[in-house]
């Protein structure tokens, strides 16, 4: 067996989720190669070569891959896939974007968002917002898989793989990058944070998120949100935790003014400890909370921040 893992990166640094995906690949077993496709992404290739357990890093360095356009990346990966039994990418918005194209070009099913490897052809994945876990076996020649990062540990970074350049370039010429507005924050990334403080509609407005930020500063935490808080314009979309947002599993998740709809729980119920602060004692969030506090958040959050 041989496995191709597609690296997630921004042309200058490797994204942490890649390390979790390599661990999933190692659990499948076999030789692991990593593809770094990007533009001026040499530094990423060097980083990828240090991932423990990686045999070879393939680098496709071209403007066509600079923004990870699905049309170009999908074709490149499908062309490379012939030599592999499995193709894996992280279930991030990048992986979700191009991997189904790879699967369709290879005429195979994609297995989305796996949370466990049972064997080389059998995997577990959540369905129905995590209310059920399906075990599925693939009969396809090539297994195309996206990996939920929170379900696998990060691979170590002590390896020394060889690096090989690819010169085959695919530019479908049907799509182009216009612009990007990326959130800037000194806080840890949501999906990698050990502690997360999340706010919901109960926060009332965007300014009130400052209360959570203060608490987050004290805890070295990331700040998340429910869909309702994002829809209401309190905070940007990249903060949404849930079934259709980000999946997180920190050591500690503090849900503030969040009711606990199934779609929100789907994104955070694998956290080690969950704290809920809500003024409604009937709120469903309390059913998954290790520690529940019925209180007005505008009193409880500043007090908590002070006493920690």
């Amino acid at each position: 067996m041989s496995i191709l893992v597609i690296a997630e990166h921004d042309n200058s640094a490797l994204k942490g989720a890649t390390l979790n995906t390599v661990t999933a690949a190692a659990q499948i077993g076999g030789e692991i190669d990593v593809l770094v496709a990007g533009e001026n992404c040499g530094a990423v290739a060097e980083e990828a070569a240090k991932i423990a357990g990686v045999n070879k890093v393939l680098v496709a360095d071209d403007a066509a891959y600079g923004h990870q356009l699905a049309e170009n990346l999908g074709q490149l990966v499908a062309d490379l896939a012939a030599g592999y039994s499995h193709v894996l990418a992280s279930a991030t918005t990048t992986g979700k974007n191009f991997m189904p194209r790879v699967a369709a070009l290879l005429d195979v099913a994609q297995i989305s968002d796996i949370v466990a490897v049972e064997s080389a052809d059998t995997f577990q994945r959540p369905i129905y917002a995590g209310n059920a876990i399906a075990t599925v076996r693939s009969g396809d020649a090539t297994k195309v898989i996206t990996v939920r990062a929170t379900a696998f540990d990060a691979a170590a970074t002590e390896g020394s793989a060889s690096v090989e350049s690819l010169d085959k370039v695919t530019d479908a010429g049907v799509s182009s990058f216009v612009k990007e507005e990326l959130a800037k924050s000194d806080r840890p990334e949501l999906t990698a944070a050990k502690v997360i403080v999340s706010g919901g509609r109960g926060m009332g407005n965007g300014e009130n998120f400052a209360l959570l930020e203060k608490l987050a500063d004290k805890l070295g935490a990331a700040v998340g949100a429910s869909r309702a808080a994002v829809d209401a314009g309190f905070v940007p979309n990249d903060m949404q935790v849930g079934q259709t947002g980000k999946i997180v599993a920190p050591e500690l998740y503090i849900a503030v003014g969040i009711s606990g709809a199934i779609q929100h729980l789907a994104g955070m119920k694998d956290s080690k400890y969950i704290v809920a602060i809500n003024k409604d004692e009937e709120a469903p969030i309390f059913q998954v909370a290790d520690y529940g506090l019925v209180a007005d958040l505008f009193e409880a959050v500043p007090e908590l921040e002070q006493k920690l």
């Binding site: 923004h67 991030t92 182009s176 990058f177 990007e180 999906t191 940007p236 990249d238």
Partner: peptide, 8 residues
Amino acid sequence: DGGLQTLS
């Protein structure tokens, strides 16, 4: 994941 991206 990082924010918003616009494509043509």
